[in-house]
Design a protein around this nucleic acid. Sequence first.
DNA 1: CCACTTATGTACCGTGCGGTACTGATATGA
DNA 2: TCATATCAGTACCGCACGGTACATAAGTGG
Lengths: 208, 208
Amino acid sequence: MDSAQRSVMGRPRGFDADQALERALEVFWRHGYEGATLTDLTEAMGITRTSMYAAYGNKDELFRRALERYTLGPASYGVRALEEPTARAVAEHVLRGAVQATTRPDRPAGCLCVQGALATGEGGQAARDALVAWRRDGEEALRARFARARDEGDLPAGSDPSLLARYISTVVYGMAVQAATGVPREDLRRIIDLALQSWPAGPAPSHA
Amino acid sequence: MDSAQRSVMGRPRGFDADQALERALEVFWRHGYEGATLTDLTEAMGITRTSMYAAYGNKDELFRRALERYTLGPASYGVRALEEPTARAVAEHVLRGAVQATTRPDRPAGCLCVQGALATGEGGQAARDALVAWRRDGEEALRARFARARDEGDLPAGSDPSLLARYISTVVYGMAVQAATGVPREDLRRIIDLALQSWPAGPAPSHA
DNA sequence: CCACTTATGTACCGTGCGGTACTGATATGA
DNA sequence: TCATATCAGTACCGCACGGTACATAAGTGG
């Protein structure tokens, strides 16, 4: 981010903060917020607890930062999908992106936004709330995009943007669980085609 | 179970083992395996740790027993659904049963089989494996039912039972995540109708 | 009544948790 | 050179975790 110029005084950081955050992200992704211990995290990050606390604050903050990085990295297909020309293409992009992201062999299986903290004890409530908000925001962005599509005539006038957004989100979450269970990528891809048969105006190009 | 006749010698149990297990089930359901501490569990069960260990073995075994009870109780819609006359009715029964079970106001939101242990640390692997097997078994039962339906002509000859089972399961898991997020029951019900539009032979009664 | 068996309650164990005080090390700026 | 500021590493804190030893209560069979 700002490695070009020494920002202020003091001893310079001895590790790559972006890379360390990436490692932390993977640990959270694989073990969930509560299942990821500080020892797991810092060992994967290659730094000591002290350095982690100095750089990120605490475990909660580290998780929040990792979630941000997840949004911009592995889950970036979400914002890119919104730029597709048609609502149908948006839906398809989201579903295919989700399958891709949740079944990469070099990454943990599943989706951080689901398995990061779905049900937790007392200590994990902040992480759980953050993921609830994350999912709500994602779904809302999808709803707004579908609403625009309806206004533009891209979707039938009678279609329900919030229902469609909820449906696509639901399939995404379901596939994330399947991916975490170990279902292979190809099997999930076949679900996409089936799920999209419910899409308004049918599989044929809309002309109504 | 066997409360009518004193089974053997020794001091009789001072609590209702079924009711205590029910309470433990709710704690696991709400907080997940790792998020549920022995203190949480035994306080909800109304017994001491010693009694819990004497009656169920350990936390792992208690979870396994709670999962069994979950299968026979809140998730019993699954086996009942298999007895529906048509594959379509089976699918609809499963989806409606899932919505009902995951959004009951007097129970934790969501599905134990998903949020019980989706991603865990080291200590939760046994619970995680148990839930993976539970989901696989459920999906396999659905697949077998759909395969029978195809053989009987209830489903088109070209349909894929394992794909259909995976699709229905995926929607169920997705709705479980939505329920855990706090999406209300009615919103999920509307997803069912949309999801079932992908069902083979369409919404009209099959006559091919 | 007594030996035996099982359940209960208290008080505790070792361990690993998230988090931190403190000491050095390494940079800047005057 | 030296005060200042930040980072790194060790060694530790209090606590809650899952699990258990042990003494006692409450039944059965003889």
